[in-house]
Design a protein around this nucleic acid. Structure first.
Lengths: 117, 117
DNA sequence: GGCATCCATATACAACTATCGATTGAACCA
DNA sequence: TGGTTCAATCGATAGTTGTATATGGATGCC
């Protein structure tokens, strides 16, 4: 990924001179950084990371009622984490009758994965 | 990789219909999830993500004094972010004379990258 | 209708995070 | 020695996050 931040080349300076020139960077890639950071932030919790892992391994939809006993948190807390993942676009859900089924949106993780490699 | 999460049987379910398909266990154990989540959490900030980006693109050591003018935060704040990245093992620093030089420890991002793919 | 089940939202609170200005300390130079 | 420069730390404050309990809405079974 190309960066939009440019460094000022380090040069020798005489005493009394400032170390670096101030640099202005364009906003172009800041939106990109914000998106990727948002995804990483959503992953940055052990419960949410394992939630993604479970959903991804299942390669399909998983009912919330089967997720709750896997973790040592209450059902509302788990729902809160699932909501965070949904807000970040990492998972989506579908309600069928009494149950809600969650699944991973694989394309959401692609941007972060590509930036990392 | 074995999981350390155990499914508790649901005995209170009303007789008749089953709620869900069989559950798939998470592929990562809790300690592994904690490590990866820690790295993701450190990346989950736009400034820190761009810091990594700059350091990585320059494939070498970068002076803090060159980093400060790139971002719209004060020097102590940037030092705080660099400290977070250092705590997560993503970057390391070396002090030479008056300046501190930071560089990326590429292996630190490998675990997260592998888990994502 | 009456009741249990499943899930989401609301509220509250403790813990953590980001940010700043001020300060400290270390290293350099004259 | 004293002044300058750079980076880390300190103290304070505002904002965010993780968690729990409580509540409500929707569905299905009797």
């Amino acid at each position: 990924m190309p960066s939009d931040l440019e460094l000022t080349p380090k040069t020798k300076r005489a005493a009394g001179e400032r170390c670096c020139e101030p640099v202005v960077y364009p906003d172009v890639d800041r939106a990109h950084a914000l998106r990727i950071a948002d995804v990483a932030k959503a992953i940055g919790d052990p419960i949410r990371l394992q939630l993604i892992d479970v959903l991804r391994n299942h390669a399909g939809e998983v009912c919330v009622c089967e997720l709750v006993p896997l973790f040592d948190v209450s059902q509302p807390t788990l729902s809160h984490h699932l909501g965070k993942l949904r807000d970040a676009g990492i998972v989506d859900s579908e309600r069928r009758g009494l149950w809600a089924y969650y699944y991973v949106r694989t394309d959401a993780l692609k941007e972060l994965s590509q930036w990392l490699s």
